[in-house]
Structure formats: C-alpha cells, structure tokens
C-alpha cells in the first residue's frame, strides 16, 4: 500500500467519482455497527409518523461512506486529519430498490510545507444535495 505524495497532487484534481448504493439492509447494518438504532432509519411507519417521506439513511452513514472516495485516493484511511459536513437533506431510502448517492471530490488546496491537502466532497441523491460544505483535510507524504 502506498500513500500519495504531495508532489503528485494538484489543486483542481478530481478524484474518482463513485455511486454508493444504500438499501434497508445497509441501514440495519449501520444501525447495529454504530449503535444509532433510531427507528426512522429502518421503519417506514415510524418515519412517516414524524413527517418524513419514508425511511431515511443515517446522516452519519452517508458521511462515513462518502469519505471512501478520499481514503481510497490518499491510500491510508488514517491520513484523514479532519472531516466535516453539514447534513442538508436526508437520503430517502424506499423499500423497493433503495437509493443511490453520487459522490464527487476535488482537491481545493495543497500545502507543500505541511504536506496537507484539502478535498471538497459533494454528495447527492435523487438529484438533491445531501451533504453541504463537506471537506476533508488529509496528510500526504
């Protein structure tokens, strides 16, 4: 495994875009793994009763899954020094077929002194942005 060098990175570089698929089984798995067992993430009657259109994904699932675009690119997940986002809209996950989340990422800065880089991510589902002001600061070699 090789970690990316700061000399190989340029501002404006686009990371490989990816499509994340999420269905009810994904959310049950995440609920168990994370300890966030809020019922709105797996039961549509409860979700609708509190005014949601259907079951929604955990925001933290979307945040956790989206960063793979960055960790895969940098070569080591422990190189993520800082990661932040706003949750602008929920990812609605219907029983039939689930949902897709489209993730893109672009390098917005490279500092040759610290060898750190900032990557800005976008994530959208059903044509709507689900993460806002989403950035990761990574330590390159």
């Amino acid at each position: 495994m090789r970690v990316k060098s700061h000399t190989e990175v340029t501002v404006g570089e686009e990371l490989t875009a990816r499509t994340l698929h999420v269905d009810r089984a994904t959310l049950v798995h995440y609920a168990g793994a994370s300890g966030d067992r809020n019922v709105i993430h797996w039961d549509e009657q409860t979700a609708r009763a509190v005014g949601l259109p259907d079951v929604i994904a955990h925001g933290m699932w979307t945040m956790g899954a989206a960063i793979e675009a960055v960790t895969d690119w940098v070569g080591d997940p422990a190189r993520v020094l800082e990661y932040r986002t706003r949750f602008t809209r929920p990812v609605v996950v219907p029983h039939d077929g689930g949902a897709d989340v489209e993730v893109t990422a672009v390098v917005t800065s490279v500092d040759p002194d610290t060898r750190q880089s900032v990557v800005e991510l976008t994530a959208s589902s059903a044509g709507q942005k689900v993460l806002g002001r989403c950035t990761a600061r990574v330590q390159l070699d």
């Binding site: 495994m1 994340l20 994904t26 798995h29 995440y30 168990g32 793994a33 994370s34 933290m60 699932w61 945040m63 956790g64 899954a65 960063i67 793979e68 960790t71 895969d72 080591d76 997940p77 422990a78 993520v80 990661y83 990761a136």
Partner: peptide, 28 residues
Amino acid sequence: AVGAGSPLHRDLAAAQDAGYRDLVAPPT
C-alpha cells in the same frame, strides 16, 4: 457497514506492516 475497503480496517498484518499498533478505525 460504511463500505470502507482498506485492508488496514480488517487485516492485522497489513495494519502492522503500515506502522499501526492494531486495526485502524475508519475516519468516522
């Protein structure tokens, strides 16, 4: 659960070869 594919999350030898004491937790 979050689809993190790095072997550093699951393969102890890979994590230690990369210089970590044990399996590396995902960023979130």
